[in-house]
Design a protein around this nucleic acid. Sequence first.
DNA 1: CACGGGATCGTCT
DNA 2: GACGATCCCGTGT
Length: 205
Amino acid sequence: MPKLPKTFYRRSDVNQIAKDLLGKVLVTHKGGQITSGIIVETEAYKAPEDSASHAHNYRRTARTAVMFADGGVAYVYLIYGMYALFNVITNQKGQPHAVLIRALQPLDGLELMRRRRAVESGGKNGKLTQGPGVLSRALGITLADSGSDLMGSEIWIEDCGVGVTACEISESKRVGIRVPEPYRSVPWRYSIKTNPWVSHPKPER
DNA sequence: CACGGGATCGTCT
DNA sequence: GACGATCCCGTGT
């Protein structure tokens, strides 16, 4: 299966890219082992204007520096001290757009994914890749992967020819966002309707 | 099923 | 020194 080309990531419409990523396959190759899953849920983050983005107003720190790279690299950050969330950086250099991958339908390497989950979650037993924190655990993605080139040999995204049409895409508010309107409520979360692997966030506070 | 709380640490003030 | 783009589990109904 072909890796998505750089041109896919370097387009300027991050919401379109977030929708286009549905149905694509996220793959990791670590320690000689492949694990992968079909992307079923994404969210778009559009700095500088998007106040929910880490790069709001071009905010640039050691952590966010990779968001300013040319599209086609990973941005991974730690949340709540325990989860490494995986994002794809899009657009051209200096335009810090990102797509958070929120859920996968497991595809290859099920055994390894289960093993990683068992180790890292203390034997806990939720779904493998339903949610941005646990999917990283299942695929072995860590903070060390931030900045990694998606054209490289450890993490990439493939087009396996599964099409997702506009009417199969559900739009909703992003999860866990507590910034002022309008960015608190923009419908920039995209998921495949009826896919059982889409996450079920808590009601917002 | 709804709700509440705890885990755990890098990042920024 | 506070907090977060999460997840899991215990409790009550």
